[in-house]
């Protein structure tokens, strides 16, 4: 059971959260002009590193806010959490 720090509510149990996969994947600004290959990248391709991973969580059973986190997928250790719009911590 992960312990996740919601940047709005503080530390809460994993069961309160919904996972949102890789962070910082922007919706293409002009989908109609996006080629099939780039569109497929947007739809289906996400980073999957063994190591620090910038990802999204939503405090579903709490404040219902989305936020970002960097977590090491080799240990599950959270290296930092930050609000939407804030830059990824170094």
């Amino acid at each position: 059971m992960l312990l996740i720090e919601c940047p709005w509510c503080g530390q809460r149990e994993e069961t309160e959260f919904r996972y949102g996969g890789q962070a910082h994947v922007d919706y293409p600004s002009a989908p109609a002009e996006t080629g099939d290959t780039e569109w497929a990248e947007f739809l289906f391709y996400r980073d999957n590193p063994a190591g620090p991973f910038a990802e999204r969580w939503m405090h579903a059973a709490g404040c219902r806010r989305w936020f970002n986190a960097v977590r090491d997928t080799r240990t599950n250790e959270f290296l930092g959490v930050y609000r939407i719009g804030e830059g990824q911590p170094a």
């Binding site: 949102g20 999204r56 939503m58 219902r64 989305w66 939407i84 719009g85």
Partner: peptide, 13 residues
């Protein structure tokens, strides 16, 4: 609802 909130909070803020 999740879908709405995701777009509102993460993409079209």
């Amino acid at each position: 609802l999740d879908w709405f909130e995701e777009w509102l909070q993460t993409e079209w803020i």
